[in-house]
Amino acid sequence: MSVAETPRRAVAAGDWIMRNHIWVFLALTVAVFSFASPYFLTVNNLGNLLTQGAFIGILAVGMTLVILNGEIDLSVGATLALSCALAIGLQTSIGTWPAVIAALLAGAGLGLLNGLVVALSGMHSFVVTLGALIGIRGLVFVYTGENALMVEDFAYTEIAEVYLGPLSLTALVFFGLAAAFQWLLTNTRHGRETYAVGDNVAAAHDAGINVKRHKIVNFTICGTMAAVAGILLSMRLGTAEPNAGRIWELWTIIAVVLGGTRLSGGYGSLWMTVGGVLTLAVLRNGLRLLNTPNYVELMVMGGVLLLALALDRALLTREGAR
């Protein structure tokens, strides 16, 4: 019995590593940078790193839900910029908190719009949200008149200066949202539907799941997350650049895929996404500390992404062979 046990346990361990490879990546990168730079493993630097990574992280929370459904949202960067601009621009006319709420609603509304068009037209979400990416950026420029908006009441920028130990408000919000939505994925009906829809849409439909309504909800969540990130960005910077968040949608997708969530849907988790976001942040921060030119960071990212893809392929082949 025990003879048969050992290899089985080894296989299970191998499976665990295959399915959670991102944490191995993360541990490796942390170890390497800790040795390479004395500044890396300091509370101050790690706090900074988390704050920097949290914006992409919050976008990635919403993106993970959409990708688990087998869809994609390219418009999150533009939505972030719009919410950022609204949160600052509306303050003088309607007050600080109403402006923040309006920014949040704008993000939710645009997510809802994306979801409605995807669900009702049957178009590929890549096309729909590519259009939205271009159009929402247009909205941002129309609203800001291509100038950066400045906050007038500097008390607003103080909000983001809340710290819990080394953790900034932004990082706290990221971890809070990731935990909340991970709980939602594992413990609620909507969460389980998210997997069922992305995994085997025919089976989900036959089981009576309203696939269209379900996807609309997840796109709305994704837009809302983008708005949250935009509002936090406006608090942190005190300005709203019309070009804020440009190509962040691509970084977000990279973070999610790096974590191990599968683009075809049905497989992944926010736990993995957190790993992907942190690895991305550690790489960027660590390479910068080492004073490597910034091109190394970009090239390493490309390489790591391909590696993640190859690992995922290996996992699929293994499961297929069973």
Partner: peptide, 23 residues
């Protein structure tokens, strides 16, 4: 759905929930 557990597949789409939609 291959990624869901046996129990979740048995009750696919008809998961028992409380009134807040929590499984």
């Amino acid at each position: 759905s291959p990624e869901l557990s046996v129990a979740e597949n048995i009750y696919l789409g008809a998961w028992p929930t409380n009134r807040f939609g929590i499984l």
